[in-house]
Write a protein that binds this DNA or RNA. Sequence first.
DNA 1: TACTCCTCCGAACAAAATTCGGCACTGATT
DNA 2: AATCAGTGCCGAATTTTGTTCGGAGGAGTA
Lengths: 157, 157
Amino acid sequence: MERLDELDRALLRELQYDARQTNRELAAKTGVAPSTSLERVRALRERGVIRGYRAEVDLAALGREVQAMISVRIRPPSRGNIESFREWVARLPETVSVFVTSGTRDFLIHVAVPDTDGLYAFVIDRLTERREVADVETSVVYEHLRAPAVAPVRERR
Amino acid sequence: MERLDELDRALLRELQYDARQTNRELAAKTGVAPSTSLERVRALRERGVIRGYRAEVDLAALGREVQAMISVRIRPPSRGNIESFREWVARLPETVSVFVTSGTRDFLIHVAVPDTDGLYAFVIDRLTERREVADVETSVVYEHLRAPAVAPVRERR
DNA sequence: TACTCCTCCGAACAAAATTCGGCACTGATT
DNA sequence: AATCAGTGCCGAATTTTGTTCGGAGGAGTA
């Protein structure tokens, strides 16, 4: 994969910070012409460096006040079991994201639910309906910090 | 907080799927006039329901091929220790996100580093420089699936 | 009915995205 | 040293979009 130069990196920093700023702002902040930044960003998108643009939504505002990380052990941890569980869990409405991991647990599931009842129900109703789930451990998430995308680029010249 | 109606929800779905589509597309897909969708989206942003817009970047393309979840126990788990560790770890360049959790561990840190050496170095150099870190457990992340934002809205009429 | 409050609409205007011809630079070739 | 191809960037022209705002329509109230 083609390497990224300083301009690419600056554009990525800016777009992680605010993906909806105008191309003109992007160009001004990175010190190039709008047509140049447009072309670079398009290339980054086509190369797959930028995977997409997402609105970050406040889960609490959607009525999902309680978040948790649930670690799951699958037995036996065969490819078939891992893959089918992965597909299934990623599609549940409670699921925010899924990590497939090494170690004593095979999955780490980030869920957001309306309340603690919803959390309990998720664990004892949803998860246990899967035979391959051997072990579950739930931790409530008090706070979730995203790493502040690297500080935005300051204007040049 | 003011409740969300069907239009708000449809707009959120669309913006989670693609935050860079034009307001006109948004309006067409949700069956309202562009001025209406513009006003709704602005309100959602001002209310804090939409927290921001982010480009999703392929970490491997940035040379961070290895991801891990690192759970950390802080001793004693006093407010001072928790808060200072949280601020410190969230600012490290390796950190992708930080979960403050209940249970036997106090933190879960999602990191992305160039290679396994980088991971090892993060754990034995960075983390252990903090006195309050009592215990660390590392799991390599083989795969990270984001829950597919709910299926986009189909065009009305 | 008359009134107020909202929400949404659509046309007009301002601003942005997008295209594309051409210039400048680089490196290879002769 | 001169030529040439390839590449990346620029800026003006064009197309598309964002944004504003007056007014229409509907719901609720007195």
